[in-house]
């Protein structure tokens, strides 16, 4: 009976996922994503030219989905965006430094610990998992940054995304950002 109940759970309990959003919503999500990633890319170019520092991390693409596509989501609020990325970056770099001889362990440990810490600090932000993983599996250039990875690109890039979210998400009448700061 228990086994049956276990497999029955896999059928899913809910009928009907959230409805498709309106055209205006799609438009503003697109604008936000475009402006947000443009801003980070532009800063990235300037940063590479002047300081030889990259500002772009893959997990920012995921953050853009939440920040500009699910504006009301608790996962997309500033506390989660900044807190999630920063804590996950610290976890990722630490795991890389402690376990670089076993990359599979370092990667798994980084992501799992990042999730746990984000939960514990109410900063759950899914892209943080990517931020932690990139610290482990990223390019030698990323590895060379050490804990500086936490500040640039992670913190600075998140702040740029946040600034764009504040500007763009408050333009349309139907949107408001953030729901809550801390």
């Amino acid at each position: 009976m228990k086994t049956r109940a276990y497999f029955a759970k896999m059928r899913g309990a809910t009928r009907g996922s959230p409805p498709r959003v309106g055209h205006a919503e799609i438009f503003w999500s697109w604008v936000g994503g475009f402006v947000g990633i443009s801003a980070v890319s532009w800063a990235n170019l300037a940063s590479i030219q002047r300081y030889d520092l990259t500002l772009m991390v893959g997990s920012f693409g995921a953050s853009a989905v939440l920040l500009y596509g699910a504006v009301r989501s608790p996962l997309a609020q500033p506390r989660n965006l900044i807190g999630g990325h920063v804590l996950s970056a610290v976890v990722g770099v630490t795991c890389r430094k402690l376990m670089h001889h076993a990359p599979w362990l370092a990667g798994a440990m980084a992501v799992a610990t990042a999730i746990a810490i984000m939960h514990a600090t109410r900063t759950l932000h899914p892209p943080g998992g990517a931020t932690a993983l990139i610290a482990v599996i990223g390019s030698p250039q990323i590895h060379d940054l050490g804990f500086f990875y936490v500040l640039v690109p992670v913190t600075l890039g998140s702040l740029i995304l946040l600034a764009v979210a504040l500007v763009v998400n408050n333009l349309p009448k139907s949107r408001r950002y953030p729901e809550v700061w801390l």
């Binding site: 309990a13 809910t14 009907g16 959230p18 699910a70 504006v71 949107r175």
Partner: peptide, 21 residues
Amino acid sequence: SDEDILAAMASISGYLDITTE
């Protein structure tokens, strides 16, 4: 009903990160 909730969700603009359940 799910229809009630989905209709209410549709009348709020923006993606609601929540299931009917």
